[in-house]
Design a protein around this nucleic acid. Structure first.
Length: 524
DNA sequence: CTAGGGTTAG
């Protein structure tokens, strides 16, 4: 229509341009958008507020952030209102250009441009959605000291950041804010709280928040179910699933992801099959990729590797990497070379640059002392310039989140940390504990292995926590990789010996250590 | 007129 209008010689005005840009954004056809941009420049409409906002919006939706910045640079900043500035910030961080968004945001601040609660909230959302959780918390603090009051949208943007890094103190502060201001009544806020408490290891607080939501929607039910799954409480998750049905809420495909994940954490193979089958039979929901991942994970981890492989072969669509990844990690758990090789071959095609897959395969070989094969895998990694993701842990001590990297000695208290771990290891040996060096699957001698284990970031974080918190207080640690068997055994010991409750969240679940035992019952 | 909550794997 726009092209026809042009060919007939009609001049588009700013309203026409805005409408066209909005349409272009919705269908994500940025090449058309560029043509329209040329028009805008030719017609001298670049100074018009409507057109500027519409342009920003369009480029943001078309995932074309480079052109967006170009448009911004060509725009007279004076002509942008708060709305346009906010649209720009959102568009940048949505397109993976969070750093640029931060710079632009800073520029606006320095130049004294008006920024409102939406501006701050978009930046907080941008950070928490791009893995910059500490930065999100920092922005929230700056926002308040700048005198901008958070609202009912700010809190659900902030809470995922608290959950991601288990910043419980910050999460509780946000909860307090929600109670004081009454925004707790907003179901977005309360469901975000349910999720935050679960991710911070406080599943009972999560449940408390959940029970107090008067108008629960499916997001709330799914959040608590996912929380129980993450804590390995399969039966509680299943109870919630049934309760949800009793209360007349229909489970959706995410509810099934949660309950299947719960079954898989708890090793409930038969229950899992029943849910998987009833999904289509009783609810008409077609199984998606994530449901197949869960099932492969469920079967594989319980040792039914052939059954898991059969399931993959019978899937009605091409399996994604997550499905093969579930099989490969199960093969690592049960050290199955034949299926491990098949899974790895598929993964190398789908994700040629993911170091995790190579590490898993190499570890399967190492478990059988097949060092030549281990070397071959490591050579491929080296030749492609891949490095193992370094292990990393976070711990919150007195409102501050500390990050510890495996083998990184930069923490100012490193000497004390090493000393503490050394003392503990002597105590453990006295108690008859032997370091489980099998789990360091590299061809190194025993003493080196012991040193490598001491460097694991979760142990460093536990030691840092022991040193800096009062005796008897709980510790909370988040890890970016899965916890290894040795760290698991060591932390169990520490929880008993030091009389501490220790919460450790690894990539996919919680371990709650208390009195020398772990809530996972050593199945994970 | 721009900002928001729940899911799978490693």
């Amino acid at each position: 229509m726009f092209q026809e209008m042009h060919s007939k010689g009609f001049q588009p005005d700013h309203i026409t341009i805005s409408s066209v840009l909005s349409a272009v954004g919705d269908i994500e056809r940025f090449n058309i958008g560029i043509q329209v941009l040329c028009y805008v420049i030719k017609l001298g409409l670049l100074h018009c507020k409507f057109v500027i906002s519409a342009l920003i919006d369009m480029f943001g939706k078309c995932a074309c952030a480079g052109d967006l910045m170009k448009a911004f640079e060509e725009t007279n900043e004076e002509l942008m209102d708060v709305g346009a500035r906010n649209a720009l910030l959102t568009a940048l961080s949505r397109n993976g250009l969070l750093d640029v968004a931060m710079e632009v945001f800073e520029r606006f601040r320095v130049r004294g441009r008006e920024l409102n609660v939406v501006s701050w909230t978009s930046m907080i959302a941008g950070c928490s959605q791009n893995g910059k959780d500490i930065e999100a918390l920092e922005l929230f603090r700056e926002m308040q000291s700048a005198g901008v009051k958070p609202n009912s949208v700010t809190i659900p943007c902030l809470l995922p950041a608290c959950g991601n890094i288990a910043a419980l103190v910050h999460g509780k502060a946000a909860h307090g804010f929600a109670l004081r201001t009454g925004i707790i009544a907003d179901v977005h806020v309360s469901s975000a709280l349910v999720d935050m408490y679960a991710k911070c290891g406080r599943i009972h607080l999560s449940r408390l928040c959940f029970d107090r939501i008067p108008n629960k929607n499916s997001v709330c039910w799914n959040a608590i179910m996912g929380g129980y799954a993450m804590h390995g409480k399969a039966n509680e998750a299943i109870d919630i699933f049934h309760l949800m049905q009793q209360k007349g809420h229909k489970p959706d495909f995410i509810s099934f992801s949660c309950v299947l994940s719960a079954c898989s954490q708890g090793g409930l193979t038969e229950q899992g099959w029943r849910f998987f089958n009833s999904m289509y039979e009783d609810y008409g929901i077609e199984a998606k990729m994530e449901h197949y991942s869960c099932m492969v994970n469920l079967l594989g981890r319980s040792g039914k590797l052939e059954e898991a492989y059969t399931m993959i072969k019978q899937m009605p669509f091409e399996p994604h990497a997550c499905v093969w990844g579930a099989l490969l990690s199960s093969c690592r758990l049960h050290n199955n070379i034949r299926l491990g090789k098949i899974a790895a071959r598929n993964l190398f095609e789908l994700e040629p640059n993911n170091p995790g897959n190579y590490i898993l395969l190499s570890n399967i070989y190492a478990s059988k002392a097949m060092w030549d094969e281990v070397d071959a895998v490591r050579d491929v990694m080296r030749s492609r310039g891949m490095k193992k993701n370094p292990g990393c842990s976070w711990i919150e001590i007195k409102n501050q989140v500390h990050m510890l990297l495996a083998g990184d000695k930069s923490n100012p208290q490193m000497t004390e940390i090493i000393e503490k771990l050394h003392k503990l290891s002597l105590e453990m040996k006295k108690a008859g504990y032997l370091p489980n060096t099998n789990l360091v699957l590299q061809d190194v001698d025993e003493q080196d292995k012991e040193q490598i284990l001491c460097g694991h970031s979760e142990k460093l974080a536990v030691a840092l926590g022991l040193l800096n918190t009062p005796p008897g207080s709980p510790l909370q640690i988040i890890k970016n990789l899965r916890i290894c068997g040795d760290c698991h055994a060591v932390i169990k010991f520490i929880s008993g010996f030091e009389g501490r409750e220790i919460y450790v969240r690894d990539t996919n679940r919680f371990h709650h250590f208390k009195d020398g035992v772990c809530s996972c019952g050593d199945f994970w």
